[in-house]
Design a protein around this nucleic acid. Sequence first.
DNA 1: TTTAAAATGAAAATGGTTTTCATTATTATA
DNA 2: TATAATAATGAAAACCATTTTCATTTTAAA
Lengths: 154, 154
Amino acid sequence: MHGRGPWWREKFDQHCVRITAAREIVVNILHETDEHLSASDIYMKAHAISPEIGLTTIYRTLELLEQMRIVQKFDFGDGQARFELLNNPGGKGHHHHLICVKCKKIIDYKDFIDEEINCLGKTQDFLSQKYNFQINDHLVSFYGLCENCRGGER
Amino acid sequence: MHGRGPWWREKFDQHCVRITAAREIVVNILHETDEHLSASDIYMKAHAISPEIGLTTIYRTLELLEQMRIVQKFDFGDGQARFELLNNPGGKGHHHHLICVKCKKIIDYKDFIDEEINCLGKTQDFLSQKYNFQINDHLVSFYGLCENCRGGER
DNA sequence: TTTAAAATGAAAATGGTTTTCATTATTATA
DNA sequence: TATAATAATGAAAACCATTTTCATTTTAAA
């Protein structure tokens, strides 16, 4: 967006949070993947880069990033939290989810998102006023059965 | 909706799942609340009605209800799953969420929902076709800071 | 009834996540 | 620079929501 340094640096500044090697590595890992990584997924990737990083730090970093709204934490129902970099709604990487309740497959979709964003934007304006909320982002997920799981339900 | 018995009975039939006292109690507890109950919340309420019901059964029942799409499981980030009866999108009880990322307060809103549902409906049609998905329901949540938590972020 | 399948409770195990605590690194200040 | 104050870290232990095990009971079917 701006010239100097990655976009998330200014969020660190705003929150008076130090930019450390470990934190940089975690953000980069999330930046480079399009998967929904769990804490231990991230730990393993980080460990490959810098073996002295502990799992505890991964958890702590993720919690921090979540609080700063740099990262969104998800529960897709498989027993461990998963994390995604949080892009601006309307921004390039922003997407919504299509989740199969049977096999837990997740499709990230961006189709049709313009109309959705437009409509959600109006909703957001309405809600922020009515409830005096500062809304930063949103989450939209559709649940159902994927191609493979249809016809043999339960 | 129909005359004979609660609406969820036919879902049990469809899935060949027995209607037991414990299961009936759990559904009723969820039906009578407008809160987001955790498994142990439900356990305590159930226990007050029928003390022999075990926590294990509560968990098992909730999982079953989730699979049958009678109940939606949520992770609001406080370390335990929370459960809501799943009403038809567009139906009376259907709502979306407004979540404060700081104090974790959750507002269930129904305002503006007609426009949203309308737009989401179009999206849903588009997605089911494109990805050959049978979409049953959806989840919409806005994240931000509530009235009280603004101005003192982090 | 009788039998097979499903549901249940109590206790134990699991495993993702958090805490604790001693150590190290970073920033601010003199 | 030194130096002090604060923040970040790793390893191990603790935590605690959720699952599994297993013996028993309940339910539906024949």
